[in-house]
Amino acid sequence: MSDAPDGAPEDPEGADEADPAVDGGHDPGSSTHTVRLELVDEPGQLLAALQPIADNGGNLLSIYHERGNKTPRGRIPVEVDFEATADRFEVIVGALRDEGIAVMQAGTERYAEELTLLLVGHLIDTDLSDTLSRIEADASTSVADVSLAAPQGTAEASSARLRLEARTGETADALETVRGIAEEKGLRVVAPLAGVET
């Protein structure tokens, strides 16, 4: 226990066990998790992002705040390490999303891949909110960010840029889900060129 951070919960398995943080997830007790977030560059955003972690029993270990390294959309990437049980980890990630925080990566498996695409057509008349809910309903996909441009209101075709998060290896499935919904609603999908973006 000598290397456990201050305030870490008691490790029920004792100190002689292998460090569960290395592979994460299998240990029924607390293990270390890393989440990668993208924050809007406004005062108070970092605190707002940390609150759901603390409130739900996560034990903060480190915060890496890349303030000088913005994403193309002007967001700030932040990496947070904390200890939590597997159950609490799920709750924390859900709470972060509920706060509207963009979770780019949680743990090592979930939502490790990102997919940006455009939807074009009568997005408002075809109920954009329903479109997004149905994309979210797909188990492998989460909508991280939406930008809408409807310069002519509902009179002309509008465009939306969607940033989706998908589980590793499941971006093709995510894209198929979107294509299916788009086809049904008479919308067009401008997909990224898979595997070519560098």
Partner: peptide, 25 residues
């Protein structure tokens, strides 16, 4: 085959905001 006729200008603007653009590939 899909063409470019119904790609609105707004789609290219949204792409550009994100460091991307649209090409007929």
């Amino acid at each position: 085959v899909e063409g470019i006729r119904d790609v609105p200008g707004s789609a290219l603007r949204l792409a550009a905001e994100d460091g991307r653009t649209v090409r007929l590939i």
